[in-house]
């Protein structure tokens, strides 16, 4: 590895290691906040212990939890950044990014134990972080978020690109006993009971949350298909934007392709420091769908 060192009398920094950022200048002279890379907010205890150790040595008496699941270590002197980075590296804890790049993706707790979870957000969050972390966009930041179900705790409606788990139900009349629990469980009015207690399903109202499947005592409601709702063009900040839902029930196998094509589309079509939400509003969401999703990603 080629190390590029910047040296003066007091400061020694490995600039190659710092190119993705994650070092945020504080008000105070020489002090930086170090933002750590915690994809999906799942932090192994061995890393957490090391972070505590390193923060005690180089930072203050607390860490800050960012809104996007990072642990941030404030009050680190510029002279200590390299040493801090190396110590965290011992347990594989990496520094996050800042600037006009693909940021660390965020995700909810995960479908392995959250009863609402429909898609494996933690697995995908790690895979996407591995593949796309720090990729320059040429314009502005690019935030990806994963929610396991339509409750959307991870606000895919406010992400540059968001993936939200969905499950489409199907119903077997033969095993249904007409208990009406599915109609009770459905909060969308997509299922009402007929006079025998059997469900009448209105697909146009269904948001694919699978509450009917979870409650059905006879397994008469079951999975037909699962996938992601894809949302694009959301942001918060000074001028918040709500994203557009551009696809439903997209299979896992399309996840990487959609991210790749979306970032490429943003690179090519964005102007200056605008976010992709602004690009889409300028050019129209139909153009985005046509360019990015037209060959079969849409269902």
């Amino acid at each position: 590895m080629v190390d590029q060192f910047l040296e003066d009398k007091t400061t020694k920094l490995n600039l190659a290691e710092m190119k993705s950022g994650g070092f945020i200048k504080q008000r105070q002279k020489d002090l930086f906040t170090i933002r750590l890379r915690v994809p999906g907010g799942r932090l192994l205890l061995k890393k957490l212990k090391k972070i505590v150790e390193a923060a005690e040595k180089y930072g203050a008496d607390y860490v800050h939890l960012s809104v996007r699941q990072s642990v941030e270590i404030p009050y680190v002197n510029i002279k200590d950044i390299d040493a801090l980075r190396k110590e965290l590296e011992e347990v594989g804890q990496k520094i996050a990014s800042c600037g006009p790049r693909v940021r660390v993706p965020t995700a909810c707790s995960g479908c392995e134990y959250n009863p609402n979870g429909l898609m494996d957000v933690q697995k995908w969050c790690l895979a996407v972080d591995e593949k796309f972390f720090g990729m320059p966009t040429g314009h502005h930041k690019f935030k990806i978020s994963f929610s396991g179900c339509p409750i959307d705790c991870f606000r895919t409606t406010e992400a540059d690109l968001g993936f939200q788990g969905q499950m489409e139900p199907k119903w077997n009349e033969e095993t249904c006993v007409g208990c009406t629990l599915c109609a009770k469980a459905c909060q969308e009015g997509a299922i009402v009971s007929n006079k025998d207690g059997k469900p009448i399903y209105d697909a146009s109202k269904c948001i694919y949350c699978a509450d009917c499947i979870r409650v059905c005592p006879t397994e008469s409601w079951m999975e037909n298909k699962r996938g992601w709702a894809v949302r694009v063009g959301g942001k918060h900040g000074r001028h918040p934007l709500q994203s557009f839902k551009v696809a439903d029930l997209v299979p896992d196998s399309k996840t990487f392709e959609i991210i790749e094509k979306t970032v490429k589309w943003y690179k090519e079509n964005g102007i200056g420091r605008e976010r992709i939400g602004e690009t889409i509003r300028r050019l129209g969401v139909e153009k985005f769908k046509e360019d990015v999703l037209s060959n079969g990603s849409k269902t």
Binding site: C179, T180, L181, K184, A185, R214, V215, P217
Partner: peptide, 17 residues
């Protein structure tokens, strides 16, 4: 909305409503 689903998750069966 919540109790029947939780009962099912625990493995019991609702036989009448």
């Amino acid at each position: 909305r919540n109790v029947p689903r939780s009962i099912k998750e625990e493995g019991h069966q609702i036989i009448d409503v």
